[in-house]
């Protein structure tokens, strides 16, 4: 329902971009993927500003462009919703909480009550919930992403590379891109041959 987006006044769109990314950066602890998926939950699943199922394109672009995943997610959603200005506003929203909090910490204004039992309990609760967010997204996209043996192989190698060998994700992604091109070349050739054979039979 992108019509909703076009009906909204531009100022309102920009405000929602800023405010939601500010909220995400403030409350979603623990890294890039959680932030991307939280943004998907708000902007695709709730507001319907982006195409349904655009998450996969979004993930591909966010991961291949250098930069922080949270920042790239804000730029992607902001640009798709409201152009270059939208991207700027979303980016400001995602960077603002860190900027304010870290500056306060660096100036010695605030002390983080990290050894407090309740704070730790709340943190464990939030991280458990974000694990659920990640699992829910995996379950939703699994069938679209994992189409054949090649997909399972690449996914397994990337998972193992990160968890067991602590490889830099960038190298794994680069390898996956190259493998994807080779694999497509190979299967495309086969499909073309099959089509040709089919054509010969019919003729």
């Amino acid at each position: 329902m992108e019509t909703d987006l076009s009906k909204l006044p531009r100022g309102r769109v920009l405000w929602l971009l800023f405010f939601n990314f500010f909220k995400i950066a403030l409350f979603v602890v623990g890294g890039g993927y959680a932030i991307i998926l939280a943004a998907e939950d708000i902007f695709i699943r709730k507001l319907h500003w982006l195409r349904d199922g655009e998450l996969m394109d979004m993930l591909a672009i966010i991961q291949t462009i250098p930069g922080l995943m949270a920042g790239n997610a804000a730029i992607y959603v902001g640009y798709r919703a409201a152009g270059a200005l939208g991207a700027l506003v979303a980016l400001a929203g995602v960077a603002m909480p860190s900027f304010l909090i870290i500056t306060a910490v660096a100036m010695g204004f605030s002390h983080l009550p990290m050894d407090n039992v309740y704070v730790q309990g709340a943190f464990i609760g939030v991280r458990s919930a974000l694990g659920g967010l990640v699992l829910a997204a995996l379950l939703r996209t699994w069938r679209k992403m994992m189409t054949d043996w090649f997909a399972y192989l690449v996914a397994f190698l990337c998972f193992g590379g990160v968890i067991f060998c602590s490889l830099n994700p960038a190298w794994l992604l680069l390898g996956a891109m190259a493998a994807g091109i080779v694999y497509l070349k190979f299967t495309c050739g086969k499909i073309a041959e099959a089509n040709l054979a089919e054509g010969n039979k019919q003729a």
């Binding site: 591909a60 991961q63 690449v154 996914a155 994807g180």
Partner: peptide, 11 residues
Amino acid sequence: TGIHPATTGMI
């Protein structure tokens, strides 16, 4: 074709 399953593995 390569990035999609790689993303699944990373997630």
